[in-house]
């Protein structure tokens, strides 16, 4: 049974290719009696498949891919923005640093100038004070000298009057002594 069947199909597959198209042949792919069923079921299944693909699956995948590429583009944009911002911040920082440096320099120069000026004026003031004090002191010395010198005369007169009175027995007035001293001083 098997042998005859095998033989039968064997001959059919060799010579049966054109013969099979007649229908009812033993070589299944050319058996036209199955065509109607195959075509119908292909139309149903492939039609359904096409419908599902075009209405559900492909729009969905396209959506997914679009959302992803949008997201990537958005992230890249954001990253660029951040980079720009940080660049700006660095530039601003550097500018401020430079400004602060120049400002600090200015303050330092100003302070040192001021300090110098103050020291100068203080020194001048002190010098002026000192010279004023020196002048008054010299004046005072001169005055004292003057007073002392003038008092030396009267002391001498008093002393002379006392001595004369002691020696001569005291009848000489003070005025006579003074006039005598002045006389002696003139001669």
């Amino acid at each position: 049974m098997a042998a005859t069947k095998e033989h039968e199909t064997g001959t059919n597959s060799e010579v049966g290719t054109p013969g099979g198209q007649e229908g009812g042949g033993a070589f299944p792919p050319f058996d036209s009696s199955t065509f109607a069923s195959q075509l119908l079921w292909l139309a149903i299944t492939f039609g359904l498949f096409y419908y599902l693909m075009s209405k559900v699956v492909l729009p969905r995948i396209s959506d997914i891919l679009e959302v992803r590429s949008d997201r990537i583009a958005q992230d890249l944009e954001e990253a660029n923005r951040f980079k720009q911002e940080s660049d700006e911040a660095i530039a601003a920082y550097e500018q401020e640093l430079a400004e602060a440096k120049s400002k600090a320099h200015a303050i330092a120069t100003e302070a040192s100038d001021k300090a110098k000026a103050e020291a100068e004026s203080y020194r001048e003031k002190v010098e002026a004070e000192l010279s004023a004090k020196l002048a008054t002191a010299e004046d005072k010395i001169a005055e004292i000298k003057q007073a002392a010198l003038s008092e030396v005369g009267s002391i001498a007169e008093d002393t002379a009057a006392v001595m004369v009175n002691e020696l001569l027995g005291g009848k000489v007035s003070k005025a006579d002594v003074t006039a005598a001293i002045k006389q002696a001083g003139k001669s």
Binding site: S33, T34, A36, S37, Q38, L40, W41, L42, T45, F46
Partner: peptide, 12 residues
């Protein structure tokens, strides 16, 4: 037309 549900249809 013979449009039976066959093994071919099953695999489709």
């Amino acid at each position: 037309f013979d449009v039976s549900f066959t093994n071919s249809a099953l695999f489709m």
